[in-house]
Design a protein around this nucleic acid. Sequence first.
DNA 1: ACTTTTATGACATTAATATGAAACACCAAG
DNA 2: CTTGGTGTTTCATATTAATGTCATAAAAGT
Lengths: 229, 229
Amino acid sequence: MTARILIVEDELAIREMLTFVLEQHGYTTVAAEDYDSALDMLTEPYPDLVLLDWMFPGGSGIQLAKRLRQDEFTRHIPIIMLTARGEEEDKVRGLEVGADDFITKPFSPKELVARIKAVMRRSAPTCLEDPIDVQGLQLDPVSHRVTVGDQVLDMGPTEFRLLHFFMTHQERVYSREQLLDNVWGTNVYVEDRTVDVHIRRLRKAVTHSGHDRLIQTVRGAGYRFSTRL
Amino acid sequence: MTARILIVEDELAIREMLTFVLEQHGYTTVAAEDYDSALDMLTEPYPDLVLLDWMFPGGSGIQLAKRLRQDEFTRHIPIIMLTARGEEEDKVRGLEVGADDFITKPFSPKELVARIKAVMRRSAPTCLEDPIDVQGLQLDPVSHRVTVGDQVLDMGPTEFRLLHFFMTHQERVYSREQLLDNVWGTNVYVEDRTVDVHIRRLRKAVTHSGHDRLIQTVRGAGYRFSTRL
DNA sequence: ACTTTTATGACATTAATATGAAACACCAAG
DNA sequence: CTTGGTGTTTCATATTAATGTCATAAAAGT
């Protein structure tokens, strides 16, 4: 089980060093030297981890990190940021964006490998990316699609995440706040009532096949995804 | 359920503003302007959350945060740090000490309240309750449902709470007033007789399966939930 | 039979949710 | 830098459900 690591780093010397060290330790690597080529490499097969230089041509590391976190595909890929000494304030922003760890240059190969192992261990229970089927309503996290039979249902990213959460947490009431925490993520300041709107849009998207009955309102408590009733 | 919030802030203007905003939103507040008086206020009743200015006379915020984390009684109290813009590197240290969140001045009341809510929600213990079964009548607090076999019983929120209370307090008579206190909550101004109506509605909801016999009238005293008689 | 207490249906009031549309934020293309 | 499109959040309003109270019926106790 060789893990794939994407290296995003503009300086050739460091890039080669990283590649060498990592392959020496049995990892498979791909390298990009700028924002665009990094994006090109963020397709299948997806890397298991991204080593991201803070500053590089064609965009900052934070931009790429953001992008990774926005896409359902890449949301769970752990990110390790490479920062120069003294860029402490960047760490904060990095944390906010969702970086999993930081390595301050210069660093030793030993440290590098240790951190990579640690991060991958931490995110080990990487969500099972198996398709879910509930009464003909199928959600495939990998292809990022919701289908009923051969009909593809159209919905926004938030509705997709909401449905995904519901399908993996059935038969349980969630308050609007809990849904915000679980689907939107913590550190997000959104009105409770916004959930209603997304529930409505999700219902709309699955109404045609009659699956809207799975999304149930529990008055005074929140919402529930259930096959009963 | 008014949460107590301890405000530690040396500037009078900000302290008053915080107090005003928070009380406006239904929180109870206590305020301290320095390290020592903050410590004085960290006794029973303990605050549910501490809003902590980074820099204030008689000690730094980090010192107080550390102290809070050391004491068994205050260890779990969430802390939100107030930092001035540009003190980014402090955030890193703050995180290490165990602050739960940061708010950068200046901030809007909305953001303040949103963050407080988020932090308290996060630190709230998710007391998951087990389903209760009494003679085939099943109440599941998690899915917020009452079922008999595969039949789902429909009832309003108040009837649900009432049944939940009864099922967890069997074989004992409760007066209407006691029921109001326990199910409606204290300091609620409602007629005694209203209980009758909800008892009626609850009975109606569980009559089909014959479980209405569990809800017994005790003339002159109140009601009782019992499997006997 | 009379008094007290509870049961029940109806209804006005209040609260919660659903919904459409506007405002807003973001990103990518021009 | 502007523009257009996409997706998100908020707001205003409609709709629906729940609640508390009352009047009256029924039942229990004396």
